[in-house]
């Protein structure tokens, strides 16, 4: 990997967030290089969601520092929101709007000009093979198509980083792989991809991953490196090894 350090997409140092006496995120430090596919793994309740909320400018940390796309998470969260894309399994598109209306809506939110919206809509529809469905309500698209469209919409304003929160949950195995090809394509074009997943085989698709356990990052590196370092066959095995002892104590 030819990561140029001056171009880190995300830099987090000792990042911490408390809720009362509970430490949701506990001094985590990591960098994500531009154009990297970074898998952010962890058990339910390990602090992933809190960390993502900080990195997307929705929540202030209690202490530590982090810069996302060059902007400070304390003082420049509004800039961060403009520079990033976001999609999740739970919320992505408006189901009662058509494909075209969704694209126009997001174009408006991100201040794109009419011409930009028109050009990018045409390009996106042709690339996804969705020209015939442009005026179809999103709710009547198959889930796999909805997720691919949602990913493209999250990239509409050409963000330098896109955050994907369990983007492939429940999607069939072929569509899941097609979705990952969209991720590779975006990363090859220089977009940084920050992704969470419960599919451990997808962890293997990332350039690097981190595994969070009880607020801390317990493993960080490329999947091959981590398999070697921990002497395990798969990331699934490593995940269970690290997360299982903690699972007994968390609620």
């Amino acid at each position: 990997m030819t990561a140029t350090p001056q171009q880190a997409a995300i830099e987090a140092h000792e990042l911490t967030r408390r809720f009362g006496s509970f430490i949701a995120v506990d001094r985590i430090s990591f960098d994500v290089a531009a154009g990297e596919v970074f898998g952010f793994l962890g058990a339910n309740g390990a602090g992933k969601t809190t960390a993502i909320r900080i990195l997307t400018g929705l929540l202030s940390p209690t202490s530590g520092t982090a810069r996302v796309a060059g902007h400070d998470v304390y003082s420049e969260s509004e800039w961060i929101k403009r520079r990033i894309g976001y999609m999740s399994q739970k919320f992505s598109l408006y189901e009662d709007l058509t494909v075209r209306e969704n694209i126009r809506l997001y174009g408006g939110i991100y201040d794109l000009s009419k011409d930009e919206v028109r050009d990018r809509t045409a390009r996106m529809l042709s690339r996804l093979g969705l020209e015939q469905s442009a005026d179809t309500q999103v709710r009547s698209l198959p889930l796999g198509w909805r997720q691919k469209l949602a990913f493209s919409v999250a990239l509409l304003h050409e963000p330098s980083i896109v955050f994907l929160d369990e983007p492939t949950s429940g999607v069939d195995p072929i569509t899941r792989r097609q979705f990952w090809e969209l991720i590779y394509e975006a990363a090859a074009g220089g977009t940084t991809v920050f992704v969470t997943t419960h599919y451990m085989d997808e962890a293997e698709y990332c350039d690097r991953i981190s595994i969070m356990v009880a607020g801390r990052i317990e493993a960080l590196g490329s999947p091959a490196e981590l398999r070697r370092r921990f002497g395990v066959e798969s990331i699934d095995e490593l995940f269970v090894q690290l997360a299982r002892p903690a699972a007994a104590q968390t609620s």
Partner: peptide, 11 residues
């Protein structure tokens, strides 16, 4: 087990 992490799924 949908949406549940790999450890809880295994349990």
């Amino acid at each position: 087990t949908t949406g549940v992490d790999a450890v809880s799924r295994r349990e």
